[in-house]
Each structure stands twice: as structure tokens, then as C-alpha cells.
Design a protein around this nucleic acid. Structure first.
Lengths: 295, 295
DNA sequence: CGGCGGCTTGATTCGAGTCAAGAACCGTGG
DNA sequence: CCACGGTTCTTGACTCGAATCAAGCCGCCG
């Protein structure tokens, strides 16, 4: 694929990089993720190469650090190379709403150049230790002008964000149990897409509460409920998803909106797998719970 | 500006067009809206002309009709020329969630071509009588490849949708009163952007309930409350906004996310206008209400 | 005239938030 | 090794906002 074709200028943020990771390896893995992401957006190999060639800073961000504050005054677009970040906004009360999680390969602040006013108030924070790369807005725009497939790709990427946000809105209409289940399914699916197949979810309950729009206390109770249903289990400090397909069934999760063709097999059709001819009961939580309990 | 420069091929959908409107006039107004929209997205005049030249069907849709079902099998992109539509999705229970309203000049189904799977489940319905135009996906993509400013524009448009959806998520965290106020402010602002300056809102309470994510009953009660606060008034069948700035203050509405530079003067700064030095109380509804009542 | 869709209102239920206190689990430094 | 302060998790009791159920009303159109 020629991903690492040309020489890539990498400058290290002195003293910020975790000492344990090999920089070359880290860089390569990160760039591969960007390449995969672009590929999933329909961008051609030539264009991917061109983008990677312009990416010229890599820095490490520690857990719970603000990512955007790191590169003022925003002449660059930030790309996540490794780790998980989240974009969020704070309500007047202090309360934060997490809009979504970003994974390796994702563009973090597409809005900043295009619609500075619209993105006002949105911040991005590292949920785990992260490494990021940047690309100059001017460079990216030049490439977009040159390569139609790239312009389709970034368009698609923005559209995808919109679709995911819409699903988020839809999700607020569900009960807490379904909502949390849906959120977990989404997180799991997106992690798999970047190659993390572990069923453990490295997010604190507070994080998940802010993402689901529920109070931390109620998230906790919901988890307890999911545990008694044998869908989740404790694993030391973090949660582990025990039964993905039943979790997806409970959530009514259909991952097709995530635009990950290669993953759909595992998720899409399991929703009505458990029962035939009784689909009407699947929609209702009350009876749904009873079914799951009985089995 | 040369909007109507070249000859525009317009074919009428026989028998569907409302007999009372003059087609030429309707067509021109609609196209002007598309031009304004594209302009607000930063698209140049040459490109706007090129897009308008490829738009070649105009049809009328009556209130509460499904717009998407009208043009299968989706080789075209649908553009709203006149009227208001809404995109929505239905929950398993039958319950519908309105994602947002579309106004004259908006693209309705950007996702269908780019991310068919992601947009699955989303429908678009005419809220008032509408007229629509279409443009072939192939044509649009050809233009995008040719004109960088157009590709930035559609990118921006998708991004804008994402930002608006995000605000929608944020909105679900507010109380019903603030939420409804915010929704009304958004509707008002977007209507103004397309030249409708009337303070009356032509949406049924059910529509607003589905958009706000509240039950119709509770929307009604909230309206009553807003009326006793002298923010709203009944005007025959529909609602009329009496005091825009106090409504915006109550909602904590900052319209800048809507990307409408020309409108910001009227909205942006009024939020903390009523009181100085007491900003802390503005965030809290309880006291906020008392303030409003006292005045 | 009747019927129907949208609005209005009351009574009741219930899910989720808030408050508060305790327990388990860090990482840190003595 | 243990003592510590600080998160994060857990649980209970209470409150409250919004959904639901139910009924009556208004205005419209056939």
C-alpha cells in the first residue's frame, strides 16, 4: 500500500513522550490507523500517502489532559494516532456532556477551521494516554483541491459525525438500561474497528455517565442491573462485556450507522436472533427483561 | 451575482404542483434560497451558478407527505426550495424523534449517497407544503471534483449538521422549560435566515414535542408556563413569540453555532444583558424564573 | 350534523436526579 | 511495610420532573 512511502518529518514534543514506548513503532501504528480510517472513508491510496506525508508533528498527551489547548492558535488539524479521546461540552451548571469518543485515526477538530463559531464551546480531552499528529489546514485544503476522492472522504467523515450524533439524540429517548447497553455496544464496535478486540471497557463510570447523559449514581445502578442479567461482569476495576449479542439485542443496536463494513457481520443481525415470531415483545423493555431473566 | 445566468432546465411533476402558485416565481425564489445557502457556506458565485444549472426537477409536496419516498431509487440529491421539512426517525415503540428542521435552500439527504448505511432509518417529511429540486449525485460529484470551493462548502454543510445535532444532544440535558425555549429560538433564528421574520411558529405542539423529546402533554404545560411568563402568546391556532430576547436568555441560547453571521447581532449577546454582576443566577432556572416574573 | 385531530387540564405513576455516607481501590511517601 | 489522602464505586432514602392515563374541549372539514 505504500503508506510509509516518503520520509515523514516527525518532531517530538520534548519531555512529554512516555518513555516506555518506542517512537518509531508508535508513529507507525498511529499512521497506519490514519490510513485505515481514510481507506474506510473511500480515499484512494495515492491520496492517503499524500496526507500522511504532510503530517509532521507527533506528541504525547496524558490521560485527562486537554488536547486542543496543546496546539493554539489552531493553524493545524489534530489527528489522533493512538489512544482514546472524547469531545465534550460543559453545561452552565458545570455538568458535562460527552458528544462522542475518538479513536486512533480520527480527526479531532474538523470544525475548527471550517465553522469556528459552530464548534465554540466544544473541548477535547484525552481519556487514555494518547499520541496525536497534526497537519496544516492549508496543506489539507490544498490536497482536497487536488484530489476529489479526498474531498469526498472528508465530507463523508463529517457526515458520519452527524449521523453518530443523531443516533445519540435518538438514544436519549430510550430507558437508562437500553441507553447504557447501546452506548457500550457502540464503544465496543468502534474499539474493534481499530483493532482492540478486548471485551473490557477502560472508561470510568463517570465518563460513561457523561456520555449517556445520566447521573453517575444511576449509571452504577444500571450496571448492577446489567450484571444481574449476566450481560456484564466486573473485572477488577473495569467492566467486561460478557454477552455481546444479548447486550445488542437489549439495546436494539444496529451498528450499520458506524460505517464499518468489515464489522457488521458480528453485530447487525443478532438483534432478532434469540427469538422468532415474537418480535413484538423485543421492543418493550419490561417484557424484554423478563425474557432475559428467564433464560 | 449572476444567479440566474444560464438557462435552467425545469421539468414539472405533472399534477402535483399546487395550482395557486406561479411556477416561475416559485422556482426563482427557491433557487435564490439555494444560492444564499451555498453562499453562506462559502461557495463562490461561479460554483453556485454551476450547481443551479444542474438542478432540473421541481415538484410540490404537500404537508405531512414523505419526501424521500417520492424519488426512488435515489440517484438524486434532494434540495428543499420552499417550505419546511423535518428529518426524523422512529423508535421501536412507534415514538418519533425529529432530528431537525430543514428550510429553503437546505440539502435534505446528503447522507444517502455517501453513507447509505448510516442514514438508514431516517425519513424526511414535509411539515408545511414544500417544493423541492433535485440534482444528480453524479453531477454534483463532478462539480465537487472541479471546484474546490464547492467541496469545502458541502463539507461545511455536513459539519454544520453535525454541530446542530450536537447542540441537540446538549439540549436534552436541560429542563423542559429551557429546552423548549431553546428549540423555539433555534426555529426562529433559522426561519429568519431564510427571510421569514414572523414571530409566529407554524408547528403543531406534537411536532415540537417530537423535536424536543418531550411528551405532547408536557409540551403543552410548558407552553402554558411560557405564556404566563409573557414570553409566548396564543395567536389563533399557533404560537407567537412575544419576547425573543428574554426567551433567549431563559434558554441560554447562543445562535453562533448555526453559522449565520448576518443574524448574530440580534441574538448573541442578549443572554447576559438583563443583569450585570449577577451572572451566577442566570444559570439556575429557579431563580431565573423569579427574575422574569418580577420584571 | 358528526367526526376527528389538535389542544387543555387533572390525577397518578415512575424513572432518574440529588444528597449523603460508607467501602474499595488506588498511588504516594514515610 | 504500612499509613495517608484522593478518586471511584456502591448503596440507601428522598425528591421531583416528566410520562402516562383519562376525559373534556375547541375548531375544522366533510
Amino acid at each position: 500500500m505504500g503508506i510509509y512511502g516518503a520520509s515523514i518529518l516527525v518532531r517530538y514534543q520534548v519531555g512529554r513522550l512516555g518513555s516506555h514506548m518506542s517512537m518509531n513503532r508508535s508513529k507507525q501504528i498511529g499512521l497506519r490507523h490514519v490510513a485505515l480510517k481514510l481507506e474506510s472513508l473511500g480515499v484512494g491510496n495515492t491520496e492517503i500517502d499524500a496526507v500522511l506525508n504532510r503530517m509532521n508533528v507527533v506528541a504525547a498527551i496524558k490521560r485527562s489532559e486537554e488536547i486542543m489547548s496543546f496546539c493554539r492558535p489552531a493553524k493545524h488539524l489534530v489527528v489522533l494516532l493512538e489512544g482514546v479521546a472524547c469531545s465534550y461540552e460543559r453545561l452552565p451548571k458545570g455538568n458535562r456532556q460527552i458528544y462522542g469518543y475518538h479513536y486512533a485515526g480520527d480527526f479531532c477538530d474538523l470544525h475548527r477551521r471550517l465553522l469556528p463559531a459552530s464548534g465554540h464551546g466544544v473541548s477535547i480531552e484525552a481519556v487514555t494516554d494518547c499520541s496525536i499528529g497534526v497537519i496544516k489546514h492549508a496543506d489539507l485544503e490544498e490536497l482536497i483541491a487536488r484530489y476529489p476522492s479526498l474531498s469526498l472522504g472528508v465530507w463523508r467523515s463529517a457526515m458520519l459525525e452527524a449521523c453518530i450524533s443523531r443516533k445519540g439524540i435518538l438514544n436519549t429517548r430510550r430507558s437508562a438500561l437500553e441507553r447504557v447497553a447501546h452506548l457500550l455496544c457502540e464503544v465496543l464496535a468502534r474499539r474493534e474497528a481499530v483493532g482492540i478486540k478486548s471485551p473490557s471497557i477502560p472508561l470510568s463510570q463517570t465518563d460513561l455517565a457523561d456520555a449517556a447523559g445520566l447521573s453517575a449514581v444511576h449509571i452504577n445502578r444500571t450496571f448492577k442491573q446489567l450484571r444481574t442479567l449476566n450481560l456484564l461482569a466486573k473485572e477488577g476495576r473495569t467492566m467486561k462485556v460478557v454477552d455481546r449479542s444479548r447486550l445488542a439485542a437489549l439495546a436494539g443496536f444496529d451498528g450499520s450507522y458506524l460505517n464499518m463494513p468489515e464489522l457488521l457481520a458480528g453485530w447487525q443481525l443478532e438483534i432478532d436472533a434469540p427469538r422468532r415470531g415474537q418480535e413484538s415483545s423485543l421492543g418493550r423493555i419490561g417484557s424484554q427483561l423478563l425474557v432475559l431473566r428467564a433464560v
